[in-house]
Computed example of a mutant assay.
Amino acid sequence: MDWKVALGGWVVGLLIGLTGMGGGSVMTPMMIFLFHMHPALAVGTDLVYSCITKLAGTIQHVRQKTVDFRILGWMSLGSIPGALMGSLVVRYLEHQVAIDAADRVIGQMLGGMYILIVLAMAWRWWRKRRGTAPIAPGRVPRVALSVLGLAAGFLVGLTSVGSGALFVSVLAMISSLSASRLVGTDIAAGVLVTGVAGLAHLAFGNVDLRMVVSLLVGSVPGILMGSRLIVRVPEPVVRVGLMTLLSWSSYNLLK
């Protein structure tokens, strides 16, 4: 048991409890910059960790009937093969390109993803302030759901980032789901895509299972604490902090 890793897991869990986001967005750069893991190993470890943490939430949301299975099904038609494709690209880079070059390419992809997520968070914040009405759930085109799922799944399998931020952003853009059903559908979609991609990375040897255990030891109490603090800490403070951290991580990965 590595207590430094567990402490890092607690910090990430606290962010997830406060914002519903921050898992892959913070976990992967933490493993790269603080624990000096290779990007490919950090990606695989984060995917397995994310799948386990989201599974309990999915079970609870299914019991509460806050999962839209129609949207989940059509998105999963794209996101599951997309996650496999992204994982295979990582595998290809590891074996067909020099290790240092592969780490650099994956790091640059991560940096690009962080920029996209910061922009998506800012866009959602702006739309929320304007009160723009999205498309009603029943009118969302099925093909659009699958195509968006394919793109999001590919990026998650490639970088481990975005199973929360990407799916929430996509669903917020194209549907008018209630907050509870938006979160529930997002978490269920995240379990599927991180589970598939995580198994692929595990088969490729890109998962540190001991680190997964240490992260879970810290993140579970962190999530519980964050969930209680959410009513006391202003959401804009947490969002700005998360966006600042992502911007800093992006700068360090792309420079």
Rank of each mutant, 00 (worst) to 15 (best):
V48Q: 04
V48Y: 04
I52S: 03
I52A: 04
K54W: 05
T58Q: 06
I59A: 13
I59E: 04
H61E: 05
V62G: 01
R63C: 07
K65L: 10
T66D: 08
V67Q: 00
D68R: 01
D68W: 06
D68T: 05
R70T: 14
I71Q: 11
I71T: 13
I71R: 02
L72E: 00
L72I: 00
L72F: 09
G73V: 00
W74F: 15
S76M: 03
L77V: 12
G78K: 02
G78H: 02
S79R: 02
I80A: 11
P81Y: 07
P81D: 09
P81S: 12
A83F: 06
A83C: 05
L84M: 14
M85P: 01
S87I: 10
V90K: 07
R91V: 06
R91M: 11
L93I: 10
H95D: 10
H95F: 11
Q96Y: 10
Q96M: 13
Q96T: 14
I99E: 15
D100P: 00
A102R: 08
R104W: 08
I106Q: 05
I106V: 15
M109K: 03
G111F: 12
G111R: 10
M113L: 14
Y114S: 13
I115T: 10
L116I: 14
L116A: 15
L116E: 06
V118N: 06
A120R: 01
A120M: 14
A122K: 12
A122T: 10
W123C: 08
W123G: 09
R124P: 01
W125G: 03
W125M: 12
R127H: 12
K128W: 00
K128S: 13
R129C: 00
G131H: 07
T132F: 08
T132P: 00
A133S: 11
A133Q: 13
I135Y: 00
I135N: 12
A136C: 04
V140T: 15
V140L: 11
P141K: 11
P141Y: 09
V143G: 08
L145I: 05
S146D: 09
L148W: 07
G149S: 06
L150E: 09
L150F: 15
A151F: 14
A151T: 12
L155A: 06
G157D: 08
L158N: 03
T159H: 06
V161R: 04
G162Y: 06
S163G: 11
G164A: 11
A165C: 08
L166R: 06
V168N: 08
S169Y: 09
S175V: 03
S175N: 08
S176A: 15
S176N: 14
S176W: 01
S178K: 11
A179V: 15
A179T: 14
S180C: 02
R181S: 15
L182G: 02
L182C: 05
V183E: 01
V183L: 11
G184T: 03
T185S: 01
T185D: 01
D186G: 04
I187D: 01
A188N: 06
A189G: 02
L192P: 03
T194N: 09
T194P: 02
G195M: 07
G195P: 04
